[in-house]
Simulated scan of single mutants.
Amino acid sequence: MREHLSVDREANAIQLRRETFSGVFLLVEGSSDKTLYERLVDNSECQLISYSNRKPSSKFCVIEIIKILDKNGFHGVIAIVDADFDHLGITPYSNPNLFRTDTHDLETMLLNSPALEKVIAEFGSEEKITRFGQDIRTVLLEVGTPIGYLRWVSQLDGLNLTFNGIKFSSFINELTLELDQIKLIQEVKNKSQAFALDSKNLQHRLISQQSSNDDPWQVCCGHDLVEILSIGLRKAIGSAKASDVESTCLERSLRLAYEETYFCKTHIYLSIRLWESNNQPFKVLRNEI
């Protein structure tokens, strides 16, 4: 009940803002999303609103607000949310004013662009990268996929496992970046205090889910990939201090390295441009993008 009262209040607040602003309201999940998209939109024609740390989730909040405003016939509002696992065969809620990221989330979109090479060039070691001998982006996906599948299994099976705050170095080799699935499961179980959960059964369930061979860009969580990159830049492909390449710093660097030309190659860009043509005179993106 509280969740619905909250989203009703947020929807009403947007409708009240129409009295002083005639442009587009763009709703996003968090402050980092807002920081990136503010560089891409026409700020005189589009105002961003973020909903960080909302319960049960920021994504739920954004989608529910869009539903309410659509029902009320309110025009000139769109939302961008992380796809999460929505592109993997699960039929999600759809709305012409709601857009999902091309890949799992905003961070995977950044990592799937040349912004990754820029960050590696800044913090990595050319000598160590050569010696490592593997494509960094491919390795990040290979290592991050089991974690992503475990997140998905937790969601599908209602396990409510906790991934926030897990120690990645407890299950990833710092020199080779190889992942130990047993140690991964144990770390997540410990963090979740799910001691009664059978590790072998969970591993079998994880292996079964992995056999579907889904697109890793849809499976992997961007925050996980950034954590893996952080570990790699300390030893495997660099010699950076841990404080210089902590995940929040790397995500900030990736956002700064992400150019407008990269965004223009995404499906979400094309979808927003189509929305603009179908909803004139509303405008979202800057003309030069």
Score class of each variant (00 low, 15 high):
D224M: 00
C220E: 01
I90H: 05
A194N: 04
G165C: 09
L106T: 02
S199K: 11
S212P: 03
G89S: 07
V219D: 01
N95I: 13
S169L: 03
Q210I: 14
D135E: 15
F171V: 09
N97E: 05
N160E: 13
I182C: 09
P146H: 15
C221V: 04
D180H: 09
I120H: 07
S113I: 03
Q218D: 14
Y149V: 13
P96F: 11
L106Q: 02
K189V: 07
Q193M: 04
Q210V: 08
D135V: 11
N173M: 02
D102H: 06
T108F: 00
R100G: 00
G165V: 10
R131G: 09
F99Q: 07
K118W: 05
L177P: 00
N173E: 13
T176N: 08
T138S: 15
S113N: 05
I185D: 02
L116P: 00
E174V: 15
Y149F: 12
Q134P: 08
L111T: 02
T145V: 11
S192C: 14
H204F: 10
N160Q: 11
E187G: 12
F171W: 13
D214N: 15
F195I: 07
A115Q: 00
P92N: 11
I129F: 12
S211M: 12
L175N: 14
G158D: 13
C221F: 03
N97M: 07
